[in-house]
């Protein structure tokens, strides 16, 4: 455990160097949040749409914003760049598991992402009035579900990052993943607004656990057994993706050609 804690501490300190880059990348998310708030405010008004009232929608969108901020800082382009530049050779000389090491670094960077998310919450609640809060049991379920976003999103990012062992063009892969995750996770619109068959399929895919599950639990739309089932689905997908990532890594590392030096 000591090596991984050390890595998490190192990245927790390193992220401070990139706070400016991070703030700029947060602008995109903040604009998205503001735009979505404006649209849904106009759509819902004083009534409700698909079972969601305006306070519930505010809760939903704030969670979506937070999930967008989580795991966005450390792993993604950093890992891709290290693979493409051959710095991965240095990582491979370490007596630690590559996948766990990257997860540890990601977890280390989470604190600044949570901080930014918290600022977003304060801003929205101050400006747009109170949001929907569920009862304490569901609040706890929400916290657990939000925590599960970290490994789940990390694994999706990690597996796409491993593509750099095969291709030099990570940007294209990154965009494709962002598009898929935005749509299928419910980050842009809640899954219940998709065509019903498509929405149902999406609910069972791992992406739903990256936004939709915690957002709907906080919004009170996913409650009781359904909330517990959502949380379990997140855990099951995290475990499956962990194994899939391991298998991908085992193949990827065979592809490794370190260029130049």
């Amino acid at each position: 455990m000591r090596p991984y804690l050390a890595l998490a501490r190192a990245s927790a300190r390193s992220v401070l160097t990139y706070r400016l880059t991070f703030v700029f990348s947060m602008f995109g998310l903040i604009f998205q949040l503001l735009a979505l708030l404006a649209i849904w405010h106009a759509v819902i008004g004083a009534g409700q749409v698909n079972g969601l009232t305006w306070p519930q929608m505010k809760s939903y969108l704030l969670v979506a914003f937070s999930c967008g901020a989580l795991v966005s800082l450390y792993t993604d382009f950093g890992m891709a760049a290290r693979i493409q530049s051959g710095m991965v050779a240095v990582d491979l000389t370490r007596p630690i598991d590559y996948q766990k090491a990257r997860l540890a670094e990601t977890v280390g960077g989470v604190w600044i992402e949570l901080l930014v998310a918290a600022l977003g919450w304060c801003g929205v609640i101050t400006l747009l009035g109170t949001i929907f809060w569920p009862d304490p049991v569901h609040l706890l379920l929400f916290v657990l579900s939000l925590a599960a976003v970290v490994p789940l999103k990390f694994l999706v990012v990690y597996i796409t990052g491993l593509a750099c062992f095969w291709t030099q063009n990570y940007l294209g892969i990154n965009w494709a993943r962002v598009a898929v995750v935005n749509l299928l996770s419910g980050a842009l619109i809640p899954l219940s607004f998709l065509p019903s068959w498509f929405g149902t399929v999406a609910e069972y895919l791992p992406f739903a656990g990256i936004t939709s599950t915690p957002a709907l639990i906080l919004a009170g739309d996913l409650h009781g057994l359904a909330a517990v089932r959502g949380l379990l689905l997140q855990v099951v997908w995290a475990l499956l993706l962990w194994l899939l990532a391991r298998a991908t890594w085992a193949t990827a590392v065979r592809q490794l050609t370190v260029h130049g030096g």
Binding site: A10, R13, L16, G86, M87, A89, V90, G261
Partner: peptide, 12 residues
């Protein structure tokens, strides 16, 4: 030691 690749953490 790879002379062209540092193993230090750049920001630490």
């Amino acid at each position: 030691l790879f002379g062209q690749r540092s193993q230090l953490w750049w920001d630490l």
